[in-house]
């Protein structure tokens, strides 16, 4: 086995270079390690509401619908069902 002979100055320089390298990549390591939630699925949904009773439900958005549009009748009392809101539902996953 060959013994590697290094003097203390060279060792110090190598340690300094290593520390410099670590300082340079530290922000990147931290950003990768930090837990961030990312959006895995997006879905456009609409809230429909009965004008007579408290019936309200969330369903998939249908093309051409807008807030205030009458889209059918209430399953409870046959009152008019209107679109109350349209929004994007985002499903996220934490890394």
């Amino acid at each position: 086995m060959v013994a590697l002979q290094l003097d203390s100055l060279l060792v110090a320089l190598m340690i300094a270079a290593l520390l410099l390298l670590l300082t340079a990549v530290l922000p990147w390591i931290l950003s990768v390690a930090s837990s961030k939630s990312r959006v895995v699925k997006e879905e456009l949904v609409e809230v429909v509401k009965c004008l007579k009773c408290d019936y309200e439900s969330v369903r998939k958005y249908e093309k051409g619908d807008y807030v205030g549009k009458v889209v059918g009748s209430c399953p409870n009392d046959k009152g008019s069902l209107v679109v109350k809101a349209i929004y994007v539902e985002r499903y996220t996953q934490t890394k």
Binding site: V47, A85, I86, Y87, V88, E89, R90
Partner: peptide, 11 residues
């Protein structure tokens, strides 16, 4: 952007 759920709840 299209309305999000958070903003809808804000409304």
């Amino acid at each position: 952007s299209p309305l999000s759920k958070k903003i809808y709840e804000g409304a």
